[in-house]
Design a protein around this nucleic acid. Structure first.
Lengths: 102, 102
DNA sequence: TATATATTTCGAATTATATCGAAATATAGG
DNA sequence: CCTATATTTCGATATAATTCGAAATATATA
């Protein structure tokens, strides 16, 4: 991953509404959680919720699976994993250099 | 950290410009990097750069230290650390549950 | 096919971000 | 005190994000 691909993912998570949604999806595990359940949990209008969810899907953080009338949101864990790896590899302090030199 | 404090930090990093700035500051280590050096590296107008930097400061990701006419930007590593910890603790899969049940 | 449920798309209004030139502030050195 | 350097603040514009009601789509079931 590079800056160009990491930043949009961070931006998606940089909203309390979407971070809340994402966490609920993660907690649901591999079976996912229906859009309707999310709507009940955070009580915002369907259209607003749908907009946020499509952003999460577009960023690769979650995917969707339809079962009849119900759309399940499923966490794509490796996407956040990749972002976290990028951050730890590129944005974390080099402890040895930090504590020794100067 | 909770959702309300983590989201704004993620939002700050969710811009390619600011993520680039932040990475340069991190690379500079404990001495930090002058605003002017960042400006030379990414060549955007002073006023635009200043706006982005103040966002990073406000979010706690960096701090500033003045030496004469030069303002150094210094990474506040523990802020990103806290965010990463929050994400790994709250947004990562419970592997045991994922692989076993069902 | 008619009706109910689940969710998205559309369209429009509001709010927030990003951007930049110009003017202002702060500091240093002559 | 004057000039140069470093950086911010101001003010205005452009672009993007958020929000929501209403209409549309998709699926299920009677």
């Amino acid at each position: 991953m590079d800056i160009q691909s990491v930043a949009p993912v961070l931006k998606e998570l940089g909203s309390t509404v979407r971070l809340t949604i994402y966490m609920q999806v993660v907690r649901a595990g591999r079976q996912g959680v229906p859009v309707g359940d999310i709507q009940q949990a955070i009580s915002i209008p369907n259209s607003t919720l749908s907009h946020h969810i499509s952003g999460l899907v577009k960023s690769g953080l979650i995917s969707q699976r339809r079962e009849g009338r119900v759309l399940y949101c499923v966490a794509e864990y490796q996407q956040l994993d990749s972002v976290i790896s990028f951050l730890t590899e590129n944005c974390c302090i080099d402890e040895s250099r930090y504590h020794s030199s100067n």
